[in-house]
Design a protein around this nucleic acid. Sequence first.
DNA 1: TAGAAACTGTGACCCCGGTCACCCGGCGCT
DNA 2: AGCGCCGGGTGACCGGGGTCACAGTTTCTA
Lengths: 238, 238
Amino acid sequence: MGSPYGLELVDNCVYCKLRTDSFFCGLPKESLDAFEKLKFTAAYPAGAVLFVEGQAPRGIYMLCKGRVKLSTTSADGKTLILKIVQPGEVLGLHATVSNTPYEITAETGQPCQLNFIKREDFLRFLQSHGDACLKAAQHLSRDCQSAYQQIRSLGLSHSAPERLARLLLEWSHGEGADEGGTRIKVALTHEEIAQIIGTSRETVTRTLADFRKKQIAVLKGSTLMIRNKPALERLVGA
Amino acid sequence: MGSPYGLELVDNCVYCKLRTDSFFCGLPKESLDAFEKLKFTAAYPAGAVLFVEGQAPRGIYMLCKGRVKLSTTSADGKTLILKIVQPGEVLGLHATVSNTPYEITAETGQPCQLNFIKREDFLRFLQSHGDACLKAAQHLSRDCQSAYQQIRSLGLSHSAPERLARLLLEWSHGEGADEGGTRIKVALTHEEIAQIIGTSRETVTRTLADFRKKQIAVLKGSTLMIRNKPALERLVGA
DNA sequence: TAGAAACTGTGACCCCGGTCACCCGGCGCT
DNA sequence: AGCGCCGGGTGACCGGGGTCACAGTTTCTA
């Protein structure tokens, strides 16, 4: 196989180190072996589209390496980003489980490795492995939660600075701070940030400039530096 | 038991007519009998609060009769309604499955009958009944879908008339039309409609007045009359 | 390494809709 | 009857932020 798109492939789920903290975490070896037999591993370049909203579900994708962008687009071309998916998560689960069209679009943001499992295979797998089915339910409930989060953010925090502040805080979650603040890597353009919080690119630029002026946070290149977390928390009204 | 709060109680799930088209639809009798043993049936008056966001999950509620309002509230008192739940649906599933706090608040909108199942009992039930677990996953995936719907509506349709139009269309789904339009019962105040589409009460009033003037739709009392569906569809840009 | 393409930064304009203020009509109370 | 309360209807105001336009900068690509 080599290293397509500059990726080192992981080729066995049983020994994958993600196993400890992700979807199949804690599954008995037996279930994992069954899973292993069904999967198709593939590598994708940056910018590849895995599925598009409206398509009939083909199956699930499990992300091993890279980042995937989940988004939805309106008839007039506006795009909203729902989530940036991290390795260990599963894509297309709801559509596959309920056999309804994918309602979101998944696009790789960088070279990625994914395992694909066909719909029928996956459903059969869930039916015969109760423990995996429970995991799937848990995964779905986490998806629901993050969706509800976003609904709160879009529906209740009407001002753009507030929503941006909320996003920055979310990113800073679980990151260590040194003197001078929290340093975070974000590989997103202003445009994409705008699409996450439902505003325009210009507003993101302006608001970030404002945050910089007020010494709250500085985004330079792909490094975000949070200098005054309490100020952010005050902005979101918590 | 009699008829508390003016309700005729349904007391056996096996013979409940909801069975054909809701959560436990198609479950084998055996699973249903097991379910039957775990449930606690209770009746609630209008305005009762079943659970509040932030509480640790106690278990799931399955709605037999009545309507339940799911909402979330921000620190500064603004409320957003996520969903009006119909009989046959299950409440509190994600919190219970993933053992995280309820992230929404559930309040009865009218006298209701619900079956409650304790968290541990329910989880054990799912573990031993793979078919029910799959149903639960399907239910969760439907919740996700409706959440994504709402995200689209809040994040992509920036104008209030557009969001209102989308809501009316959603309500008219699957309702029969006679000459003169589709007639729908809605037991919501303008205030509540505003909280669903994330706008202010005044804007709802004004927009409805506008729809009336343009012969698009008329809301009088609790009866909504949709006169010009294509116009609504044009408004949402479909 | 030039040129293109994508991204960032900023000013000007202006419209949507949030907010406040007030009135009206219906309904339950005492 | 009189009163309070809730829901609906409407005018006036004004500020946030969407949109357009363009300049400057960084990053791909040939």
